[in-house]
Design a protein around this nucleic acid. Structure first.
Lengths: 205, 205
DNA sequence: GTCTATATCCAGATAGAC
DNA sequence: GTCTATCTGGATATAGAC
């Protein structure tokens, strides 16, 4: 039996351990309250390895930021392909963000709760990143095709997603007791009624 | 002529200079990127004075935080006394927050943009502070008297204020070109239509 | 009360063995 | 590639003169 040919089941590759340890610590204590040494202990690696892989604490944060934004972008892309109308796409995104907040708390917290500009001054701000640009693109399309009212695009996006984002933040801060999906319908209808065009039949999407 | 009896016009008392210098720096660079020495230089005082008045950097931040929350609370109180119905009070608060964002940018930025928990771990979170509790109280009253729909209170508050807060944040980040009051009407009607009760005449407030 | 000069500490970064 | 040990810079905090 080839026991010995099997590699010892290394639980995770070293860079993943570093990233997930850093994510936990950054979210719990805030970037500036976490030192390389904290990460090193939590991930069971050495300082040297962290520098080898990421070039330092800021490098870890940058890798994390990019990785997580990519994950959010996938969530948005999935919504875009799964639904046809902009309105349904927005609904889908909110729904998925809500359930993601429950299942991948720290990922959502890192995006919606950290002030990246304070430690990644050279990275574009989150709201200039691909997933958020795409979300605004959906809103613009909804307005163009008459599904949404002809509001300023920023206003429409803020109204549509503002309430949901606020709920996510409150949930992350522990203010809201129930899991977010519990509030999904109420939030959705409230947000939509602010931006939906008067339903006079034409859905040109 | 009593020229000499007049005190030399000291532009500001020392502790105010410290606080306003700290506010500027905290907002611009983030608490953790600002040192006592930065504050000292910007305020034209000595390190010793800062320690005498506030006991250190954290003390400065705490004093600032408390002071600013009190200012926001006044804004909320003014709205409550100036208007009678909860709905009008909410409108008034949003309107005043918008104009405050333009006229007292850093004050609003410090409240809505900084992560206080990361440097004032023993202070209550902003959303547990008096002004925000009062805002939720207004919402609760609006629901109780039938002016607002019978939503979950968190949902109602998030819907009513979420869009406006999002606009404030975007404006602070420089994403929005126009001064906020320019968007006031659109934001207001969009937010209100999500929470207003079907107008069937009864306004029991 | 206000200042300058100094002490202490700790995080970030590096060197060099394995 | 991974580790430990060490160096360095800078920030907080204090001491003591004025």
């Amino acid at each position: 039996m080839p026991y010995l040919k099997k590699p010892i089941p290394q639980p995770e590759p070293i860079d993943c351990r570093i990233l997930s340890a850093a994510l936990d610590l950054f979210v719990r204590d805030g970037y500036h309250n976490v030192s390389i040494h904290h990460i090193q202990k939590q991930a069971n690696v050495s300082v040297g390895s962290i520098y080898n892989h990421f070039g330092g604490k800021e490098g870890v944060a940058r890798a994390l930021y990019i990785h997580i934004l990519k994950e959010i972008e996938e969530l948005v892309d999935d919504a875009i392909t799964a639904e046809t109308s902009p309105l349904m796409q927005c609904q889908r995104i909110i729904r998925d963000l809500f359930s993601y907040t429950e299942s991948h708390r720290n990922i959502i917290a890192f995006v919606f709760h950290a002030r990246h500009v304070e430690f990644l001054p050279n990275e574009p701000h989150a709201c200039d990143s691909a997933p958020f640009i795409k979300m605004r693109g959906i809103v613009a399309k909804g307005i163009a095709c008459g599904e949404l009212r002809a509001l300023d695009h920023w206003v429409a996006a803020a109204t549509l997603f503002g309430g949901a984002i606020r709920m996510i933040q409150l949930r992350l801060e522990g203010k809201i007791e129930q899991p977010l999906p519990h509030y999904l319908d109420e939030i959705m209808t409230a947000a939509l009624s602010g931006v939906k065009a008067d339903s006079d039949g034409r859905a040109g999407c």
